[in-house]
């Protein structure tokens, strides 16, 4: 059925922050992405939906620079970043989180966030801690409080509960004040209360922040996004507003198919 539906044409938009052009990713013989086009405007809240194996995370990795695409180009803020390694992304104002909550388990929460700040500003070489570092420490404390981790500053990240790890991850992404955030399943494994908090937190981000999220939880996805893109089998199936997607029979079929087989 994915073959019968042509990928939706990308409308020409003003001020694109991310431009993905016919990106193909092959892992050996497996085509993980079969030519993806995607434009994201400044300040847009975009959710990417799709069953497991649809290529959502691969697309994220391409945009974040963790994977160099086999073919196609990626531009961020008008600059061609197809071959730019991931470590240069933060300086372009981009931050990401990962599908499995990732943090530096051996470091405390303060250190985790401090490192996100230090990496962003290239402050990780000096041998001696200076007033600059003290200011970064203070900033880290503020960020920790904004993600409700202010009471756990000196706890090792490895000891956090799953939901708290997600909060920390988000804090590390927010710390650098990015204008583009890629969130890979931020709500996975969270309780209902934690999800509401997450939505509240993401809603509170400034309007000019561009937000891309992969989400399995439709409630979270639909409440946060203005536009939804549905992927299946490495291709884009359809795109539209949350309301359009909710009533799209094709989307139902994709998801029902997955649910029946799992």
């Amino acid at each position: 059925m994915t073959q019968t539906t042509p990928a939706p044409a990308v409308p020409a938009i003003a001020d694109p922050v991310i431009q993905v052009r016919s990106v193909v990713v092959a892992f050996g013989g497996l085509l993980a992405l079969k030519g993806i086009d995607l434009d994201v405007t400044r300040g847009e809240r975009l959710a990417i939906l799709g069953p497991n194996g649809a290529g959502k995370t691969t697309l994220f990795n391409v945009i974040a620079g963790d994977i160099t695409p086999t073919d196609g180009t990626v531009a961020i803020k008008g600059r061609d970043c197809t071959f730019l390694p991931s470590r240069h992304r933060p300086r372009l104002g981009m931050a990401r989180t990962y599908q499995k909550a990732r943090s530096f388990d051996g470091l405390t929460i303060r250190e985790n966030i401090y490192l996100a700040l230090a990496g962003h500003r290239g402050r990780h070489w000096p041998l001696w801690r200076s007033p600059v570092d003290r200011r970064l420490d203070e900033e880290a404390t503020e960020v920790a409080e904004s993600v409700w981790l202010g009471d756990h500053l000196d706890t090792a990240a490895g000891e956090l509960a799953h939901g708290q790890k997600r909060q920390l991850e988000l804090g590390m992404a927010i710390a650098t004040q990015p204008d583009v955030m890629l969130l890979d399943e931020p709500a996975s494994g969270l309780s209902r209360g934690e999800r509401e908090r997450l939505v509240e937190l993401l809603d509170s981000l400034a309007g000019e922040v561009t937000l891309l999220l992969i989400e399995h939880d439709m409630e979270v996805a639909f409440s946060l996004s203005q536009r939804v893109v549905v992927m299946a089998d490495g291709a884009m199936v359809t795109a539209g507003t949350p309301e359009q997607i909710q009533s799209d029979p094709d989307v139902h079929e994709i998801y029902l198919g997955v649910e029946a087989s799992s």
Partner: peptide, 10 residues
């Protein structure tokens, strides 16, 4: 703990 994420931090 995680080399890839260190890279991701810039």
């Amino acid at each position: 703990d995680d080399r890839q994420m260190v890279r991701g931090l810039g």
